[in-house]
Write a protein that binds this DNA or RNA. Structure first.
Length: 211
DNA sequence: GATGCGATTCACT
DNA sequence: GTGAATCGCATCG
């Protein structure tokens, strides 16, 4: 399933569960993702230009983790998924903590509410305790420290299997900054109406300094 | 060898 | 709702 184009895999990750056993078990339900393509097709992707030592995981086996450090302080977690021979990954942008809430709260003391525990890529990684040490690990390994469950446990009695809920609705949108043929491709996917989905951000990151 | 930008979050008003 | 802080990576010469 993961051996397909990221834009095809991304919506399938919505509703999937991520479980971390790095400390006390924490499980989150994925509510927002963003696909990143390979060479030449996605200017926003780390793999747009070439393979480097940093993004090598995006060229590796599908189902593995790609963890990167950004803005000098934040870790972000991606799931590697791509067609054979093409780099690609899906960034996990937001999720809802469904198990281990107290542990997540301990890792995110600044979160004002449980809703904010994993709302945002870096927050989600922090809530799970994910760091760069996990770059390249197999998320499908049943014995791994962090696992991706496409078929959710469903301990709450609901049908939480992977994939968008027909009634909940699937939100999609093109990512700003992508031009050409890629502009028509929806790179972002989220569960419509879910409170943990981060609000749309302004396209332009603010300038720095008094200038 | 040096410079610019980035898939963000937090604190304050 | 808006502005500021932060480190590493990739690119250019």
């Amino acid at each position: 399933m993961l051996a397909a184009h990221p834009t095809r895999t991304a919506p399938l990750l919505l509703g999937a569960h991520l479980t971390s056993d790095l400390g006390p078990t924490v499980t989150i339900r994925i509510t927002e993702v963003e696909a990143y393509g390979g060479l030449g097709e996605d200017p926003g992707s780390h793999a747009h230009r070439r393979r480097t030592d940093r993004n090598r995981a995006m060229f590796g086996p599908v189902g593995h983790a790609y963890v990167y450090f950004t803005y000098g302080m934040h870790w972000c977690l991606n799931v590697v998924c791509h067609e054979p021979g093409v780099a690609g990954a899906v960034l996990i942008r937001a999720g809802a903590v469904v198990h281990g809430t107290s542990t997540a709260q301990g890792r995110r003391p600044s979160a004002r509410s449980d809703r904010d525990l994993a709302r945002g890529p870096a927050r989600l990684a922090a809530a799970l305790g994910v760091t760069g040490e996990l770059d390249g690990i197999d998320l499908l390994d049943p014995d791994g420290p962090v696992r991706l469950s496409l078929a959710a446990p469903g301990h709450d009695g609901r049908d939480t299997r992977a994939g968008p809920r027909p009634d909940g609705g699937l939100g999609t949108g093109p990512r700003t900054g992508v031009s050409g043929a890629g502009a028509a491709t929806p790179w972002r996917f989220w569960v419509a109406g879910d409170p943990t989905v981060s609000p749309h951000r302004r396209a332009a990151p603010g300038r720095r300094g008094p200038g």
